[in-house]
């Protein structure tokens, strides 16, 4: 389209380009620069070469955090690729009241992770709902320490992540299911294929690209987990700080007197490197779809 003055497009795109440069590109560059310094939250910082990177290799808490991320991903991947698909199949048919159910199933997605974690923190408390029910039914004699045990805390955070993510991936699957040609189902039904066979031979191949997409999304979000673990462990990262995630470490080092922005930046770059694989894979998928 034509425009009379050469600077009109720059005027329109100006604010966004300013934000692109100042709040996105510069911080990306500066993360690399900071990672070679010993900058502190209260200012200052000298060039310290590869010191921060050496520290990465020798950080037990980071090793724990990476292990936590791997466990997080390994549990979330199967659960969050399969359960939301089943949920989408359940709410796919337009029966009376279905909009209400769809909206209700989406509610945990729009709630803040802080709100959700506080709710689950109370449900899983030593004297909370789940422990009350467990003891009432005689399954356990003493409360299960969901929030104070190193592994139980991690699995509690995983459980609430799965619970919060169901609706999100359900919607993506719903959209994919809407794109599976209805005629295929009809033709198969005419040929005598039951619901189970139609699921395996028509639905599943139809949503396979979406499954791949969702797996990549889950991989990235498992590496970025923060609020759930932070709030469930009350900012402490569990017993001995062993339930930290990489992002929790970044946050920890960016604050307070013991903070170390240089090391936090090195951690940020590590996070970038480990998310890059699934991220690039996602970008390729999106380009193919577009």
């Amino acid at each position: 389209m034509t425009h009379r003055r050469w600077f009109t497009p720059w005027l329109l795109a100006g604010p966004a380009i300013l934000w692109l440069a100042v709040f996105n590109l510069w911080p990306a560059v500066n993360t690399v620069i900071l990672s070679f310094t010993n900058a502190k939250p209260l200012g200052g910082g000298q060039f310290t070469g590869l010191e921060n990177y050496g520290r990465l290799l020798d950080d037990d808490q980071l090793a724990d955090a990476l292990l936590n991320s791997i466990v997080f991903m390994l549990v979330c991947l199967p659960l969050l690729t399969v359960l939301p698909l089943l949920l989408a199949l359940l709410v796919q048919r337009r029966i009376p009241g279905i909009t209400f159910f769809r909206t209700a199933f989406y509610t945990p997605v729009i709630a803040s992770a802080v709100v959700v974690a506080l709710i689950w923190g109370w449900v899983l408390d030593d004297r909370g709902l789940v422990n009350g029910l467990l003891q009432q039914s005689g399954l356990t004699d003493s409360p299960v320490s969901f929030l104070t045990d190193r592994w139980l805390l991690l699995f509690s955070a995983i459980a609430l992540t799965v619970w919060k993510g169901l609706g999100y991936y359900m919607v993506i699957y719903l959209s994919a299911l809407a794109n599976v040609p209805h005629e295929l189902h009809e033709a198969a039904a005419v040929d005598g294929a039951g619901p189970v066979r139609r699921f395996w031979h028509i639905t599943l191949p139809g949503v396979r690209p979406t499954m791949v997409l969702i797996s990549a999304l889950i991989s990235v979000s498992s590496l970025r987990v923060f609020s759930e673990l932070y709030v469930l462990s009350n900012g402490q990262g569990g017993p001995g700080g062993r339930d930290m995630s990489v992002v929790m470490l970044i946050q920890m080092y960016s604050r307070g007197f013991n903070g170390h922005l240089g090391y936090a930046s090195a951690l940020s770059l590590l996070l970038f490197v480990i998310t890059l694989g699934p991220m690039l894979f996602l970008m390729r998928l999106n380009r193919k779809a577009a």
Binding site: F23, N24, A28, V220, S254, A264, S268, F272, M279, M283
Partner: peptide, 21 residues
């Protein structure tokens, strides 16, 4: 292209230098 490139950067990666900024 630059707008697109920022999409591979998870927000948490630049959060420290955004704070510095």
């Amino acid at each position: 292209g630059l707008f697109l490139a920022t999409l591979v950067l998870p927000g948490e990666v630049t959060i420290v230098s955004q704070y510095v900024l």
